[in-house]
């Protein structure tokens, strides 16, 4: 009985964190629109660039222009589920020292940050998905997968969100070692951009680079969901990729946990 009570109480604590995060995100409505516009700009730049690259060409690295267009939009969706704003909230807490206040709360830091992130993702990501899904449906030449693949795609997107959280969380914790700069976050963004396939599909890479990217967790953010959507793998292949994503989610979560307890020891010994 006690265990249930504790579970429901802690669930309520985390979900109220999520709700409050949603409220906050809504409160800054102009800022949200601007955030969205900001990443949309990057999508347009990429789209136009690839349009020019594909000018007069049927296919590149095994992808047609139709597939490429689709890829860019999927990449955009996968990437914008966890915004820069959400990310800097985590690293911000560590950089400005307010993390020591969180030590006093009866909440698991990692779970709490996940709750907050999910809260703002519902709003930010939700609207993004609606808008881009509308564009996808309306625009021509956009690839549409069959039912099974669509389903697996949605699951993969959810998994990619958790993978991204895992990476972002660890990068945020690494800020313990930086003395006040977002340098680590920017480095993470650059590395993630390239190795997740957000900038260019991994199939464009020379094979050694492509192989390297496939063993890293970043490909779980864009490459995996995009591959499933474009039906580049069959159902079994998709399930395998999903399993890999989930494995990465667990590995990243555990790494995060370990790093956190290490960090806590640092704070409590050195006084933040």
């Amino acid at each position: 009985m006690n265990a249930w009570l504790r579970l429901s109480r802690s669930w309520r604590a985390y979900s109220s964190l999520a709700t409050r995060s949603m409220q906050n995100t809504l409160a800054y409505r102009l800022s949200y629109v601007v955030n969205f516009a900001s990443s949309f700009v990057l999508l347009i730049a990429m789209y136009a660039l690839w349009n020019a690259i594909y000018a007069g060409r049927e296919e590149l690295a095994g992808m047609s222009w139709a597939q490429m267009k689709t890829y860019l939009i999927i990449s955009f969706i996968s990437n914008s589920l966890l915004s820069y704003y959400s990310e800097t909230r985590i690293s911000g807490k560590i950089l400005d020292g307010s993390v020591s206040a969180d030590l006093l709360k009866p909440l698991d830091f990692q779970k709490a940050r996940l709750a907050e992130t999910l809260g703002s993702t519902v709003i930010e990501g939700g609207l993004t998905v609606i808008i881009t899904a509308t564009v996808l449906a309306a625009a021509s030449g956009i690839f549409k997968p069959d039912f099974i693949h669509s389903l697996l795609f949605i699951l993969s997107v959810l998994a990619s969100l958790l993978v991204k959280f895992g990476i972002v969380y660890i990068a945020g914790l690494l800020c313990f070692w930086s003395t006040g700069s977002l340098g680590i976050v920017w480095a993470r963004m650059a590395v993630t951009s390239l190795f997740s396939g957000a900038l260019v599909p991994l199939s464009f890479f020379p094979s050694w680079l492509e192989k390297l990217s496939l063993v890293l967790p970043f490909q779980g953010i864009v490459h995996t969901p995009a591959s499933i959507y474009l039906e580049e793998v069959n159902v079994w292949g998709a399930l395998g990729l999903l399993a890999l994503q989930c494995a990465w989610v667990c590995v990243l979560w555990l790494c995060g946990k370990l790093m956190w307890s290490w960090a806590v020891r640092q704070i409590t010994i050195h006084g933040g």
Binding site: S178, T179, G180, S181, G183, I184, W186, A187, A190
Partner: peptide, 10 residues
């Protein structure tokens, strides 16, 4: 900010 090497590297 003695860690500005991280920033430069990033």
């Amino acid at each position: 900010q003695t860690d500005f090497f991280i920033m430069i590297i990033s």
